[in-house]
Design a protein around this nucleic acid. Structure first.
Length: 584
DNA sequence: GCCGTTTTCGGCCCGACTGTTTTCAGTCG
């Protein structure tokens, strides 16, 4: 794993991984399922925490997180102090660590894996291959030739491209939209919608869920199986079909009767955690929720809902936007009518991070500005890389001076048009927190984004101090892609997010949500934290060409998942009001 | 193991599919 190297504490992702592993070990050991579930939920809570779990634990506050109780707290302490969890060590003496990778094979759960281990001595993926070659699995009671074949097929798949990969939302969403549009146009269909994590606009997705109603369900399922994007398909039935596209994305189409369309869409939009919380609430009301309807437990009467809004209404809740459905307290908020009014794309009035051919962009200043105007924005900051950027894409102080004049002339030529181009820069924050242009030049700029592009692994304290130093600079308006994460590729660097947002609020430095779909940085948890601290958030694209000005939708998606309102987003204001929020 | 608009104990969401079975366990979402 690619974690920042420091002699300090394990980061949240490492602690979470330890609890996921512990859950699997207990599952192999035959513990009651709720105990296993509890560890998985603890792992999730740890992974999603915006603040350091190690620090929270030392402060005695970690049990404030939902899903973390006294036992988990003790185990985290052991992990911090001794480097491992005693109960996990004990279980690892019982089950070889290589057995854990066997549980990763789809279709093989803990119960089966344990039987394979105890009855056939299968302790690793290699052992499993041997057992299949010797046709030993089909001899086990309850398993047969078909089960053996399925395991063999999954093993082969695993060998080809490793365990199931997640896909960036930006790779999956266009495919999902194309398929939903084509299926909508099919004569047999009456409604098709994207559900699942793609509808919730998560950072990455495992597959794409499509929900439909159709006059001829078999024909619609067949249409997807025969679609030009489909590489392989399962058996199409009236209930739907599962296919894989040529670019390897799994698609799951489900077709239902129109009366229960709302129930089904709600169910398959998820998340699992949201649905669990929803059903728990329903049980308390004497109701039982499923994808087919809402049943009154006493009378047995079933309410079917054509819309999602009707599902939530029946449960005494305001409609909950898909982006909020992650089981992070949105049900309680909906019950109390305290859901935030989420920001919309139409609210965005400007984009404050972009590049041109002056550094590493692909379009000229004029082309980028014309495209930004066409989006209906009122202002647009051009922020090419700075003097020390490297890769031959740096901008010298002299060249930036010329750029400032070019932009002044451009603004002049726009005349009475209600549009303003901001002369800006994306300035490198050096490892000591200093910037790579002289102060006098920075003062001449309208807008300065400061970002870290070097020395990612300097350690938590130094990295935090580096940000604080940059934010104290009077010319720095905004921090760019603060965590440096690259989704599916690079972990965020280690820094104290709480200290950074506190300093940002104090110094009136904004923090961006970078909309590049590889980044989405701030992430949703940290964006919530920043907004709560009083930091004004910018939704930016970091566009390097005209086309990627569209990345605003991903910045918006993260903002909505963070529950941000229009008031919490700086560039949801017209220029006059935005300007008043600026540090200078 | 966690948690509290019935509860500090006793519950803890719901159904489909698959492969193996003559009624169900395991897995998944």
């Amino acid at each position: 794993m690619l974690f920042a190297v420091s002699a300090n504490d394990p980061v949240n992702a490492e602690i979470a991984a330890a609890f996921d592993e512990l859950g699997t070990l207990y599952e192999l050991d035959g513990a009651i399922s709720y105990r296993v579930l509890a560890y998985r939920q603890a792992a999730k809570a740890i992974r999603q925490s915006p603040v350091s779990i190690a620090e929270l634990t030392r402060a005695g506050r970690v049990t404030e997180l939902a899903g973390i109780g006294k036992t988990t707290e003790e185990k985290i302490r052991a992990l911090l102090e001794e480097g491992s969890i005693p109960s996990a060590e004990k279980l690892k003496r019982k089950f070889p660590p290589s057995l854990l990778e066997v549980t990763l094979i789809p279709g093989l759960g803990a119960k089966t894996v344990r039987r394979l281990y105890e009855e056939l001595g299968v302790a690793s993926l290699d052992d499993l291959r041997e057992a299949i070659a010797g046709e030993k699995i089909r001899a086990l009671k309850g398993l047969g030739p078909k089960a053996e074949e399925n395991i063999a097929a999954q093993l082969e798949k695993l060998g080809a491209d490793g365990p199931a990969q997640r896909t960036l939302l930006s790779d999956a969403l266009p495919v999902a939209m194309k398929l939903a549009a084509d299926l909508s146009e099919h004569p047999a269909s009456s409604a098709v919608e994207i559900a699942g994590s793609a509808r919730r606009r998560a950072d990455t997705v495992k597959d794409i869920d499509l929900i439909a109603t159709a006059a001829d369900p078999n024909a619609l399922a067949k249409a997807l199986a025969d679609h030009e994007l489909t590489a392989s398909a399962g058996n199409p039935t009236a209930n739907g079909v599962k296919v894989t596209t040529h670019n390897g994305i799994a698609i799951d189409l489900r077709i239902v009767a129109p009366e229960a369309y709302g129930n089904l869409l709600q169910h398959f939009t998820g998340s699992a955690a949201h649905n669990v919380a929803l059903r728990e609430r329903a049980v308390g009301m004497g109701l039982s929720v499923s994808e087919h309807g809402i049943t009154d437990t006493e009378s047995g009467g079933v309410t079917v809902c054509a819309t999602e809004a009707a599902v939530y209404e029946r449960l005494g809740l305001r409609y909950i936007e898909p982006e909020l459905r992650e089981g992070r307290g949105e049900i309680k908020a909906a019950a109390a009518d305290e859901l935030p009014e989420l920001i919309e794309l139409e609210d965005i009035r400007g984009d404050l991070h972009s590049h041109t051919t002056l550094s590493d962009g692909k379009n000229t200043l004029e082309e980028m500005v014309a495209a930004a105007r066409a989006k209906g924005y009122g202002y647009f900051a051009v922020t090419d890389h700075s003097a020390s950027h490297g890769f031959g894409d740096h901008v010298t102080a002299e060249r930036l001076e010329e750029r400032i004049d070019e932009i002044a002339a451009l603004n002049e030529s726009l005349g009475t048009a209600r549009f303003r181009v901001l002369a800006g820069s994306e300035v490198n924050i050096g490892s000591d927190g200093t910037l790579d242009y002289p102060d006098e030049l920075l003062e001449r700029l309208d807008w300065v984004v400061a970002s870290v592009h070097t020395s990612f692994r300097m350690g938590r304290e130094k990295m935090t101090a580096r940000f604080l130093e940059a934010m104290e600079h009077p010319s720095v308006n905004c921090i760019g892609h603060p965590s440096g994460r690259m989704l599916l590729r690079r972990e965020p660097y280690d820094f104290d997010i709480e200290a950074v947002v506190e300093a940002a609020a104090r110094t009136k430095t904004m923090i961006e949500i970078n909309g590049n779909p590889n980044r989405r940085d701030l992430n949703e948890q940290n964006a919530r934290l920043a907004a709560d601290a009083g930091v004004k958030i910018c939704l930016n694209t970091d566009a390097h060409r005209v086309r990627t000005l569209d990345f605003m939708v991903y910045a918006l998606a993260t903002a909505r998942r963070a529950g941000l309102t229009k008031a919490e987003v700086a560039n949801a204001r017209p220029w006059g009001a935005f300007r008043k929020l600026m540090k200078r």
